[in-house]
């Protein structure tokens, strides 16, 4: 079989492009440290969240000087809590679950994006270096008031931070 030289060029360029795609994804995962949201959060009884060690105590909790945890329940049409305040320069781990139907969590202007499923804990960790305001919304249609399901995350300068919820 004769292969035209232009086709050879095209095959080579196409392979190079695919290698480039895989290379950038690998760089993101290994070099930058971008992770996928997985099932490492474990499972929970969605009918009994009130007595759960983590979800019976929603809000912001301090792990250490630079690491905070946010325990959040999504229940139509609200996030509990819907107003979150954390100090700048901190690492925040969100633990989220739903008590009724499948919800979503998208922190606008960031790459934080996950489903929130009854019975499953969605665990995502991110670093917030700079002060700023982020809105978050439910992006899985969850009922008649889905469009009102939103909240706000304030990243405030460390000296203005009001402390944890409890």
């Amino acid at each position: 079989m004769e292969i035209h030289r232009y086709e050879t060029i095209w095959f080579a360029a196409s392979l190079l492009l695919i290698v480039g795609f895989i290379g950038t994804i690998t760089y993101g995962a290994v070099g930058v440290g971008v992770e996928m949201v997985d099932d490492s959060g474990g499972t929970v009884d969605p009918d009994n969240l009130g007595s759960h060690e983590r979800f019976g105590d929603t809000g912001v909790h301090k792990v250490n000087e630079s690491h905070y945890e946010v325990n959040m329940i999504a229940v139509h049409p609200s996030f509990i809590p819907s107003e979150i305040e954390i100090p700048a320069g901190s690492t925040v781990t969100f633990y989220m679950t739903a008590s009724d139907v499948t919800h979503g969590f998208k922190l606008v202007d960031s790459n934080l994006n996950t489903m929130i499923i009854p019975g499953q804990v969605s665990e995502i960790t991110a670093e917030f270096d700079e002060p700023g305001e982020y809105g978050f919304v439910c992006h899985e249609y969850c009922g008649s008031l889905h469009h009102e399901m939103a909240g706000n995350l304030s990243v405030v300068p460390e000296d203005e931070w009001g402390g944890v919820d409890s």
Binding site: G28, G33, V34, E35, T91, N111, L112
Partner: peptide, 18 residues
């Protein structure tokens, strides 16, 4: 477009799942 989408729009967009 790939370079722009991955490095500017994705990696450049604020906090990321780590």
């Amino acid at each position: 477009l790939w370079v722009f989408m991955y490095f500017v729009e994705f990696l450049g967009e604020g906090p990321t799942v780590m």
